[in-house]
Design a protein around this nucleic acid. Structure first.
Lengths: 208, 208
DNA sequence: GTTCACGCCGAACGCTCGTTCGACACCCTC
DNA sequence: GAGGGTGTCGAACGAGCGTTCGGCGTGAAC
């Protein structure tokens, strides 16, 4: 139905605008009046698309988490080599991050702003995503010798270096997201299992 | 003068209580009434110690940044070996972080909430601190072979894995801050200059 | 015994917040 | 052309916000 599609498109645009403002000013500092002004809709008009400000934040977080999860599963599907699986995970994460900077900043920075059912549902996705990386690390250990550091610490350290980029990285600057991904893979793998990554051991990074 | 000292002590207690609440609820979600309730002072009584809510946040950030900066300078003073300097930097950072979890979460999470002069002053300290780590990395490169990744990326990656801990680390859990520091040093050095850190190359970590 | 700064407070001000409500124009269906 | 769902709006509500102000008790200074 055309109605439904137009409705969804407008909601998407609204969420995108909201994410932009949330990323810039922060969730709690942003008023519904700000969002109305920025998205070209009246204050009360917002409530036709969204039940509350909370739900707005939830929709941004839930949709983007779902997208990065799906994208990650597609990127790693069928890849047998654990190191390459890891590289694809990292690449996918940074790639999505860089091309949805505002949304991902909201995801990383405002994760504590949700409550109740909304929080539970987003946390479930977060748990799945974290688990996926941890499983890859377990595979890497199996094939590339013992880990030099605790797996849980390694997992969160890797997420830390990736997610922190919203504090400093400029997608339009001179550092490409490919270099970023390759760098973090090297940094991580070299320390985690002592892998010498100075040479081209990550073929897919150059192959596209 | 005894008056001044008592005043300062009360201000310190107030800042500590405020940092605790800010860390839990966030800066903007916390009202001055919340702080009054939590610190046992009346709402208007707060304004005897502090000019505004903004200044309260600034004082928390500025004082703790100054403390971690001074502590870092003391920890690295006189240490010649670049790798050990790096290890001490990391240890100091994580140590201060773990023992001032609330304050450091405020520092990491609410860095964008300041404006104007307050922002400028905190950013200056942040720049100094970042520069200090970058200089250590330059020394490490000089003595331990060429870097495998861009120095700027490496710097922020290391800060990322360290600062991210406020999202997952429990100082009272079974992971000690010593293990945390050692792990992140290994992780970083192994990937940055290909240093094999599986054996005890970081003497001070076990020596205290 | 008066003075005065200090530490602290209750009450209030003006403002902004998220949300609701009733209404209006539009367009498709019959 | 009547009816009803869809999309949008201005105006208003009650609540909570950061901040201010006048005043009160206390203890040291003279």
């Amino acid at each position: 139905m055309a109605h439904q599609q137009a409705h969804d498109e407008k909601l998407d645009a609204l969420l995108a605008a909201a994410a932009r403002v949330f990323a810039q000013r922060g969730y709690h500092e942003t008023s519904m009046r700000d969002l109305a002004r920025e998205s070209g809709v009246s204050l009360s008009g917002l409530y036709y698309y969204v039940k509350s400000k909370d739900e707005l934040l939830f929709l941004i977080q839930d949709r983007n988490f779902a997208a990065v999860l799906a994208s990650m599963e597609e990127a790693t599907a069928g890849v047998e080599n654990p190191v390459e699986r890891l590289a694809r995970f990292v690449d996918n994460h940074l790639d999505y991050f860089a091309s949805h900077m505002a949304e991902m900043k909201v995801l990383s920075h405002e994760s504590g702003a949700l409550t109740g059912d909304f929080l539970t549902r987003v946390n479930a996705k977060k748990r799945d995503y974290t688990r996926a990386l941890m499983d890859i690390l377990a595979d890497v250990e199996r094939t590339h010798g013992p880990a030099h550091v605790n797996r849980r610490i390694a997992t969160y350290a890797l997420f830390g270096m990736m997610n922190w980029i919203y504090n400093w990285y400029d997608p339009l600057g001179d550092l490409s997201v490919e270099v970023l991904g390759q760098s973090m893979c090297r940094l991580f793998l070299g320390g985690y299992v002592g892998m010498p990554v100075s040479d081209a051991v990550l073929p897919h990074l150059t192959a596209g």
